[in-house]
Amino acid sequence: MTHIHIPDGVLPVWLWAAGWLLTLALLALASRFAGRAGSRRAVPLVGAVSALVLVAMSTEIVPIAYHINLTVIAGAFLGPWLGAISAFIVVLVLSLLGHGGVTVIGLNTLVIAAEMAVGWGLVRAGLRVFGARRTRAVAGVATVLTLALTTTMLVGIVALAGSPATERETGALDPDTLRFESPFSDGVVTLGLLSGGEHDEEHAAEEEHTLSVGRFAAVVYTLGPVGWLLEALVTAGVLGYVVGVRPRLVIAGVFAESRRTRYGDEHGGH
C-alpha cells in the first residue's frame, strides 16, 4: 500500500508532471553517484535486485489488497543511489504490466526511492548500533518505520491532489466536469446507473468536489499496519536467513562480498 495504486487521470497534471521532473532529476543524480561503483558492477546488481522486487510485488495477498514489496531489503543492499535507479525500473516495469498508472510513474518512483533510502539508512544504522545478532529485530523495526513514513508520503500526495489547486480544469479527474446523463432518464429507462439526467444538480450538490483525503488516510492507516507487519516479518525473516548463511553480505554489503578485482578492471569498468 506504500506506493500509489492510483490510476491514470485521477491526480492533477501539475502533480504527476512534477513527479516526473523530480524523478528525472533524481535519476540523473543517482546515475552520477552510482557510476562510482562501476556501471559494469552496478547494472547486473540493480537488474537482479529489481527483478526480485518485481517478483515479490506481483505476488498479491488478495483479502487486504496487499503485496510484499521487499523494498527495504533492496534498499539495504543497493544503497540510496542504486536504490533510486532500481525504484524507477520497478515502477516502470510494473506500469507496463498494468500494475500502476503510467502518468504516476514519477510519483511512485519518488515514494519507492524514499522507501529504499530510508530502509537502507535505518538498517545500516541499526546494525552498527545493535550488531548483526539483532538483524531480525533491526530489520523488522526499520521496515515498520520506513513503511509508516512512506505511507504518510502517499497520504500527502493525495492531500496535494485534493487541494484547491486541482479544482480548475487540469485534465485530472474533476467531479465538477463529470458527465453522466442519459437521454432515456425521462421515463424510458430510469433504473440504476442509467438514471440521473434530471438528478444531476442534486447529485452534484450532494457530492463533494475533491478527493476525500480524510477518508483515504483513515483507510490507508487502518489497512496499512497489517501490511507493514507482514512486510516487517518477511524482511526480518529474509535478512535473518541471509545473515545466518552469508553474514558478510549483510554486514559489509554486496559490493564487498562480490568484489573480485581482475587485471584491467580495478575500477569496475565505466
Binding site: V158, P175, F180, L193, H203, E208, T210, S212, R215, F216
Partner: peptide, 8 residues
Amino acid sequence: AAAPGAVT
C-alpha cells in the same frame, strides 16, 4: 477510500 461518489 477517496472517491466523492459512486460515479467517480
